[in-house]
């Protein structure tokens, strides 16, 4: 299982990486914004099992990143990670092809419940 974490916060990526490790997923790559994410995805020919993507990022935000991914592939699962203030934007993201969303603040069991289905 290969997962790409896209978040401008290194701390949040670290937390998510640890939670993924607890689910047995250790093939985890990281990107600090959408532009970096697209470079990583292209380098791996979009061969990922999941992209977990923050909404509020500099350079290229979550919606722009999702749009760029969906322009290439409809199959790659993308879960948007957001603070509740952006929830309406997340619903827009779902309409535009996001597979699910994770709202911050989240407890560990919520993270696991949202992410585990994509890793099984």
């Amino acid at each position: 299982m290969r997962v790409l974490l896209v978040d401008d916060s290194t701390t949040m990526r670290k937390i998510q990486r640890r939670l993924l490790s607890g689910l047995g997923c250790n093939d985890v790559l990281e990107a600090g914004n959408g532009k970096e994410a697209m470079t990583v995805l292209e380098n791996f020919d979009f061969e990922f099992d999941l992209v977990l993507c923050d909404m509020n990022m500099p350079e290229m935000n979550g919606i722009e990143t999702l749009t760029a991914i969906r322009a290439v592939t409809k199959k790659l699962p993308v879960v948007m990670c957001t603070s509740v203030a952006e929830k309406s934007a997340v619903m827009e993201a779902i309409r535009n092809g996001a597979n699910n969303y994770l709202v911050k603040p989240f407890a560990q069991d919520v993270f696991i419940a949202k992410i585990k289905p994509f890793l099984s």
Partner: peptide
């Protein structure tokens, strides 16, 4: 802080 602000705004 980002998470707090998001929760506050909601």
């Amino acid at each position: 802080l980002n998470i707090i602000a998001g929760a506050f705004a909601a």
